[in-house]
Design a protein around this nucleic acid. Structure first.
Length: 206
DNA sequence: GACCGGATTGGC
DNA sequence: CCAATCCGGTCC
């Protein structure tokens, strides 16, 4: 059982980190026990020059603060007033770049995931962790996780099976039509044919 | 201080 | 298709 990926993993080109995260295992240890899942879908949000990024034009606020810290920390934000989304901070200080984790393939603590999601034992596994809001709920990741160091043992990513990221698909990012031309940048990556990807058919064009 | 809308989800 | 639900960003 390998431990957390080293800091150096995160202090790199964000698109490269995004792709390398596919097939790795996201692990969360909480009072309720350990839950984990393989990362099968991600999106990159690359700072001041990305109109879809919360840090577009260098916005600094209580929400984006951790994006400006050195990579390897958790950027968690609340969306639509009811869900949370989990991101990994990349690059060095004052480079507000992140990777959004959009879907997991459940691995450990599946009964606890079902409980947190309010679903019965008969629920499809995909309904647990396919989607950024769903996976946060299933993993017990919330605003209390904001800024957590991913190089610690509480919330971290560890290396996956070699070869897991063989067939990688790059598409437009989801639900950022407001971002103009950036909506067409292919900064969403997922594992081909993986059934846990949140929206395999999106977008219109690859 | 007001207003607008969202990196989502689930129900109709 | 659309409501839920509230906070961040913007502009006055």
């Amino acid at each position: 059982m390998t431990g957390p990926l080293p800091r150096a993993f995160y202090l790199r080109d964000t698109l490269q980190v995004a792709k390398d995260l596919l097939g790795c295992e996201l692990v969360h240890k909480s009072e309720a026990g350990l839950t984990s899942g393989l990362i099968v879908e991600v999106e990159a949000y690359i700072g001041p020059r990305d109109p879809a990024s919360h840090a577009y034009r260098g916005i600094r606020s209580d929400r984006t603060r951790v994006q400006y810290e050195e990579g390897g920390r958790a950027y968690v934000y609340r969306i639509y007033g009811m869900y949370c989304c989990f991101n990994v901070v990349t690059q060095g200080q004052d480079m507000p770049e992140v990777v959004l984790v959009r879907a997991l393939e459940p691995r450990r603590g599946i009964p606890e995931m079902r409980r947190r999601r309010g679903l019965g034992a008969d629920a499809d596994l995909r309904s647990l962790t396919s989607g950024p809001g769903r996976l946060c709920q299933a993993m017990g990741i919330d605003m209390a996780s904001y800024g957590l160091d991913l190089c610690s043992r509480r919330l971290f990513v560890r290396a996956g099976h070699p070869g897991a990221k063989r067939d990688l698909v790059a598409t437009r990012r989801i639900n950022i039509d407001y971002a103009g031309a950036a909506a067409n940048w292919r900064w969403r990556f997922y594992l081909k044919d993986n059934p846990f990807v949140s929206r395999p058919l999106f977008p219109k064009r690859h």
